[in-house]
Write a protein that binds this DNA or RNA. Structure first.
Lengths: 238, 238
DNA sequence: ACCTGAACACCGTTCAAGT
DNA sequence: ACCTGAACACCGTTCAAGT
C-alpha cells in the first residue's frame, strides 16, 4: 500500500524499543544474563552497538524492559487460566501464582533479575499485583491482611522463590563424594540426616529436591495460614 | 620474641585472605557492592590491585568470602542468643532467624549477594543450616517436614526476605504524586486501596511498610503452619 | 531521523619482572 | 615468597560525523 520504504511494509523490520527488548530476552534465554552485552545484543539485531542507544537510554533500561516482557507474558498467561466457577480465593490465587511460575521456567534468568533490580513499579508488574490483590479482597481478606499477605508471599507472589539449595553441577564429582559424605556426616549431622531421608523418598543424593512440590508446599503453607487468619481474628499475626 | 620481621609482631599487618575479605566487606558497607572493584579494594589496603591475586583466586572468591564473613557474624550472634529454658522449637527458630536478620541490617548488600551467588555450600552456611535443622528436629518435626520447612522458609531461614516493595527514593517527588495518585487509583484500584489502608495505620503513603513487622508476620505464618502439620498428619502439604 | 566508527574511561586478569 | 608495572581483552557509553 504505502510507497515509501519503511512505512508499513518494512523490508527488514526497523529497529524499535520493542524489538531490542525481545532480542535481549532471546539472548538471555540462550546464553544467560551474563551473555547479554550491548555489543552482543546489537550483533543479534544485525546492527552496530551504538544504534541501540536511539531506542533505549542505557543498559539499565534494557534490563528493566526485559523484566517487563517476562511479566507481560505472565499477565497474558494468567488471564487465560480459567477458574472453576465456585472456586475459593485460595484456588484462584494458587492458580495465578503457579501460572506465573510456569513462565519463569522459560526464562531462568528472570527471577534473579527481578530481585536484583526492584522493578516493582512498572505498569506491567503493578497490573499483575493489582489482579492478585483483587482476588484476595474478593475472597474476603481485609485490606490489612492482603497487605501482609503480599509481604508474606514475597517473590512467591510473582511465581518464584530463591532456591537456596540450587543444583550444584560440581557436586556430582563422585571421587570427592565419598570423603565429603563422611566429613559432612561428622560436621553437619542434621543436614546429613535430612538429605538421607529426602533421597530415600525419591531421586538420588544430589539434585534431590522436587522444586515444583516444594514451591507448592510453601505456597500452600502461606495460603492456608492466611485463610485461617481470615476466618478468625484477622489482621495481626500469631 | 621472633627476630625476623613479619613473624609475629608485624609492623603493618601483612596482607592475607582474611584481611582482604574484611576490607571488601568494609568497602561494600560504605559504598555498596557496586563500589567494590579489585582496584578500589587494593587501594583500601594500601597495595596494588594485582597483589590481591596472591591471596584470592579471583573476584568471585572475594564475593563468596564476603558472604562467609557475614554468615560467620550470624553464627556468632546466634550462638549468643539465650533461649528461655522451656522454650518450644518455634521460639528457638524464631530467635535464631531474627538474630540473623539483625546482622543483615549492618550489611544491606548481603542478601542480594547471597542470592546472586548460591553460596549455600560453604562450611559457614552449612553450620548455620545444621543448627537450624537441629532445633526443628529436636522440636519433634520429622526429617521430611524439616526438609520442606527449609524450602518454605527459603531466604527467611537466613534472616532476610527479598523486599519486592523496596523504598523508592524517586517516589517522594510530590509534583508527580498528585497526577500519579489519580492515575494509580484508576488503573490499579486494589493496590491503591491497600496502600490507603496501610498508610492510615501508620506512616505516610510512601515508605509505608514496617519491614520488621512484615518479616515477623511472614515468619510466624510459616512457623505456625509447620507446627500445625507437626501435630496432625505430618509430612505432606495441604 | 537514524545509524556509524573511533575513542574514552573503566573493568578483571595475565605476564614478565622486580626485591 | 610476595609484590609490582605495563599490558590485554573486554565492558558501557560519548561524540562527531556520516546518510
Amino acid at each position: 500500500m504505502a510507497g515509501r520504504a519503511g512505512a508499513g511494509t518494512a523490508r527488514r523490520p526497523a529497529l524499535s524499543r520493542d524489538r531490542v527488548l525481545r532480542a535481549a530476552v532471546g539472548v538471555a534465554d540462550e546464553g544467560g544474563i551474563a551473555a547479554l552485552t550491548m555489543r552482543r545484543l546489537a550483533q543479534e539485531l544485525g546492527v552496530e552497538a551504538m544504534s541501540l542507544y536511539h531506542h533505549v537510554a542505557d543498559k539499565d533500561e534494557v534490563l528493566d524492559g526485559m523484566v517487563d516482557v517476562v511479566v507481560g507474558e505472565i499477565n497474558a498467561r494468567v488471564s487465560q487460566v480459567d477458574v472453576p466457577d465456585g472456586a475459593g480465593w485460595k484456588t484462584i490465587v494458587r492458580g495465578r501464582v503457579l501460572a506465573a511460575r510456569d513462565v519463569h521456567l522459560d526464562h531462568p534468568w528472570a527471577p534473579a533479575l527481578i530481585e536484583a533490580r526492584n522493578t516493582t513499579m512498572s505498569p506491567t508488574v503493578l497490573r499483575y499485583f493489582d489482579g492478585l490483590m483483587a482476588d484476595m479482597l474478593a475472597g474476603g481478606l481485609s485490606a490489612d491482611l492482603v497487605h501482609h499477605a503480599m509481604h508474606a508471599l514475597g517473590s512467591r507472589a510473582l511465581g518464584f522463590s530463591q532456591e537456596l539449595f540450587e543444583e550444584n553441577d560440581e557436586a556430582s564429582d563422585s571421587q570427592v563424594d565419598a570423603i565429603m559424605q563422611q566429613r559432612m556426616a561428622d560436621e553437619y549431622p542434621h543436614i546429613t540426616q535430612i538429605v538421607m531421608v529426602a533421597s530415600h523418598n525419591g531421586e538420588d543424593t544430589l539434585g534431590w529436591c522436587d522444586d515444583q512440590f516444594e514451591f507448592e508446599f510453601g505456597l500452600d503453607l502461606i495460603l492456608d495460614g492466611l485463610e485461617q487468619l481470615r476466618t478468625t481474628a484477622e489482621g495481626g499475626a500469631a
